[in-house]
């Protein structure tokens, strides 16, 4: 019988001690960020969605080789007069369904001072269909406008 009350006392005491901890935390300022209204500032090295600069790219294929999931594909441009490859890209495509956000492509990119393919700080990006995950940048736009251009797709929903 005595043990019974001893146990009740022990458990009740630890309950109150535990509640004291939560009571102290109750008066601490809240650390919750009300996300859509408030946003945290991403650090400088943050690896967000990739972006691509179609003018500076030399179509060297190093990012394609560096990518662990083979989500990058590109085609070098061809000079229409001489039918030879030039150090420009014709189109460049990233499959964001496969992308690991690992920065190996950015590190492999040799263009200076700003890398052609690089991570942005953008982390809000919703897609409704799988084909939207393929983001294509086209440098030589023929007669028609490109159907999916990177800049329009990169906008947050």
């Amino acid at each position: 019988m005595l043990n019974y009350f001893k146990t009740i006392y022990k458990v009740g005491k630890s309950l109150i001690q535990g509640m004291l901890v939560t009571w102290k935390s109750f008066w601490q300022p809240s650390i919750t960020v009300q996300f859509p209204d408030e946003k945290l500032i991403t650090p400088e090295r943050f690896r967000g969605a990739l972006t691509f600069d179609k003018e500076t790219c030399t179509a060297c294929n190093l990012c394609v080789k560096a990518c662990p999931t083979a989500c990058i594909s590109l085609e070098p441009a061809v000079d229409p007069a001489t039918k030879k490859r030039i150090a420009k890209v014709s189109w460049y495509q990233i499959d964001f369904g496969k992308c690991n956000y690992c920065r190996l492509c950015e590190e492999a990119c040799p263009t200076k001072p700003i890398k052609s393919v690089r991570h942005t700080h953008q982390y809000e990006w919703g897609m409704l269909e799988r084909k939207e995950m393929f983001v294509k940048w086209e440098r030589m736009s023929p007669s028609t406008e490109p159907s999916t251009s990177g800049s329009t797709n990169m906008k947050p929903i």
Binding site: T42, P43, E44, R45, F46, R47, N100, Y101, C102, R103, L104, H119
Partner: peptide, 12 residues
């Protein structure tokens, strides 16, 4: 970790 590596779980 995010400041150092740029990611929160898959650091690389």
């Amino acid at each position: 970790f995010e400041e150092v590596s740029g990611a929160r779980m898959t650091y690389n």
